[in-house]
Amino acid sequence: MGTREDEYDYLFKVVLIGDSGVGKSSLLSRFTRNEFNLESKSTIGVEFATRSIEVDGKTIKAQIWDTAGQERYRAITSAYYRGAVGALLVYDIAKHLSYENVERWLRELRDHADQNILIMLVGNKSDLRHLRSIPTEEAKAFAERNGLSFIETSALDSTNVEPAFQNILTEIYRIVSQKQMRDPPEGDVIRPDEPTDVRPSHSDNVRKQCCQ
């Protein structure tokens, strides 16, 4: 089963969203398995993968939900936003429409995800330099206006994939640990299943699998 580690200090649920064909599944397989297929099949519904990273000597386990991009799946996929503490909102730097739709995806998150979810805007396919239709600066400015972090990645040549996930997971970790310093939980062990600001409403998935 590959990526399973039983020991971790924190478990964070992260969702990958964005238009169809922008490379969400490719980012996921690059991050969790270091694999890339030039053409990977369309995602049906949602697919799941996991990977752990270290931050400040703590093991953070990312539970990542990859969602189908097609509008028709929205009713199914939006159910998975619940309990997510982070979202990678992906567009294709060579497809203007996928960038235009970022606003719609933000609305989706506002409607269905937790209020304090951290969102990172990800311009994928940065290897397609000659086809670029969204200038980096434009996307960066948009991200700042909307309080999102921003990065450009290439799942194909691996550029920035690792930092993208590292950054968002680290940022989530900082918020969670600061919150815990202010309001220390009972007992001296920090458990991943304790409520925090960034995860106001636990999903059943997360909670149950933490309480085994």
């Binding site: 519904g45 199914i76 998935n205 909670r207």
Partner: peptide
């Protein structure tokens, strides 16, 4: 499955949607 928080929708949606072709 329930104890570990696995929801049927999470895995069988694709089975139904694609009639197991995947």
């Amino acid at each position: 499955l329930q104890t570990h928080g696995v929801d049927y929708l999470q895995f069988s949606f694709r089975w139904m949607n694609n009639l197991l072709t995947r």
